[in-house]
C-alpha cells in the first residue's frame, strides 16, 4: 500500500507542477512579402530617377521666377546670382515662344548640394573637381522651352573661391562602371569665366563665375582630377537589407569639391568605384530609403587600398540627415 500511495503522491506532485507551469508558447515569425525592408535582392536595372525622387525631401527649393521672352530680361537675386535672358529667342516643340516664360533656377554650390540633387561630380572614367553647377529650366504653359540656335544666356554666380581652371561641362545621364549615372560631359559650346569687376584704382576683384551657354538645364564648371598619385578601387559593404535598390553610397572628398556616387556590384553585393587617389581623405556616406524611413551611414576614412569598408546605417530623421549633409 505504501508503494501505491507513493505513486499517488508523486503523481499529484507532477500534476501540480504541470498545472503551475505558465510557460507561454512562442509563435512563428512571418515576414511581410511586400515590404521593402525584407527585400535583400540586388537589381541590375536601377532607376536613378526613383532615387532622386526619394531624395527630393532633402533638396533645397529652386528659384522660381518669370520674364517676358519677347523682351528678354536680366534677373538678379541679390548680389550672388544674375541671369541675362535674350529677347525673342525661345522655341518649344510647337514653335516660337513669346510672352511670359516661367523660369526655375537651381544652383549647386556645396558638396551636400551634389548629394541632395544626386548630381555626382564625375565624368566618364574620371572624377571631377566641381565649381558650381546650375540648372535653368524654362517652361511655357507647362511645356519646356529651349533657346534658339545661336542664342546665349549669361549667368553670373558669386563664388569667392572661383578657379580659373574650370571648364564648361553639361550634365546628362550616362553609363559609369556599368551603372547608369548622372555625369558631366565637357562641352565646347559654352564657356565659364571668372566674374570680376574693377574697383577704383584699377584693382580687379574676383566675384565668382560667369557662364555663357546656349544650352539650358544642367551646366557648370568642372575640372578633371589629374592626380599623379596611384589610384585604387574602393569597395564598400553594407548589411544585407541595404541593396542597390534602396541605397546609394557617396564618397565625399575632404579637400576638393568632389562627390562620387559608387556603382553597384550586383554579384558581390557591394558598392564600388574606381580611380580613387590613394591616400585621399574622404567621407563615405550611405543614404537609404526603405518604405518611408531614412537611414544614414557614414565613415571618415583614408583610402589606401581596395579592401572592403563596411558601413552600418542607422535610422535617422530627415532633418538629422540634412544637418549632417550641411557639415560636409
Amino acid at each position: 500500500m505504501k508503494k501505491h500511495f507513493s505513486i499517488l503522491v508523486l503523481s499529484c506532485i507532477m500534476l501540480g507542477c504541470f498545472s503551475s507551469c505558465t510557460k507561454e508558447m512562442s509563435g512563428d515569425f512571418v515576414s511581410y512579402s511586400n515590404d521593402e525592408l525584407n527585400d535583400t535582392t540586388w537589381s541590375r536595372l536601377v532607376n536613378n530617377s526613383s532615387f532622386e525622387t526619394a531624395l527630393a525631401p532633402l533638396q533645397t527649393p529652386s528659384i522660381i521666377d518669370s520674364f517676358n521672352s519677347t523682351a528678354g530680361a536680366v534677373l538678379s537675386y541679390g548680389d550672388s546670382l544674375q541671369v541675362s535672358f535674350p529677347a525673342n529667342n525661345y522655341v518649344a516643340l510647337n514653335g516660337l515662344v513669346t510672352g511670359t516664360v516661367k523660369v526655375e533656377i537651381t544652383v549647386l554650390k556645396k558638396r551636400s548640394d551634389f548629394i541632395r540633387f544626386f548630381k555626382p561630380t564625375i565624368t566618364t572614367n574620371a572624377l571631377l573637381d566641381a565649381a558650381n553647377e546650375i540648372d535653368i529650366k524654362l517652361t511655357k504653359n507647362g511645356r519646356e522651352v529651349f533657346l534658339q540656335h545661336g542664342a546665349f544666356i549669361k549667368l553670373k554666380l558669386k563664388d569667392i573661391l572661383a578657379s580659373a581652371d574650370m571648364k564648361f561641362f553639361v550634365g546628362t545621364n550616362g553609363i559609369v562602371n556599368g551603372n547608369t549615372h548622372f555625369l558631366w560631359l565637357y562641352n565646347s559650346d559654352g564657356k565659364v569665366n571668372i566674374w570680376q569687376d574693377t574697383l577704383q584704382g584699377g584693382i580687379v576683384r574676383k566675384l565668382g563665375y560667369e557662364f555663357v551657354t546656349n544650352k539650358l538645364r544642367w551646366f557648370g564648371g568642372c575640372n578633371i582630377i589629374d592626380s599623379s598619385l596611384p589610384k585604387t578601387r574602393l569597395n564598400v559593404t553594407l548589411p544585407l537589407n541595404y541593396t542597390n535598390k534602396n541605397t546609394t553610397v557617396f564618397v565625399v572628398f575632404k579637400n576638393r569639391k568632389t562627390v562620387v556616387a559608387l556603382s553597384a556590384d550586383n554579384d558581390k553585393k557591394l558598392f564600388y568605384t574606381l580611380n580613387i587617389p590613394t591616400g585621399s581623405e574622404v567621407t563615405l556616406l550611405s543614404l537609404t530609403r526603405i518604405n518611408n524611413d531614412f537611414y544614414l551611414g557614414s565613415k571618415v576614412v583614408s583610402i589606401t587600398n581596395a579592401n572592403a569598408i563596411s558601413l552600418k546605417p542607422e535610422k535617422k530623421e530627415l532633418f538629422k540627415i540634412f544637418e549632417f549633409l550641411g557639415q560636409l
Binding site: G27, Y32, L37, T237, P239
Partner: peptide
C-alpha cells in the same frame, strides 16, 4: 559580420 533586419508579424500562442 552584419545584421539582417526583417519586418513582419508574429503569431503567438498563449496557453
Amino acid at each position: 559580420t552584419s545584421t539582417l533586419q526583417q519586418i513582419g508579424y508574429k503569431t503567438g500562442y498563449v496557453n
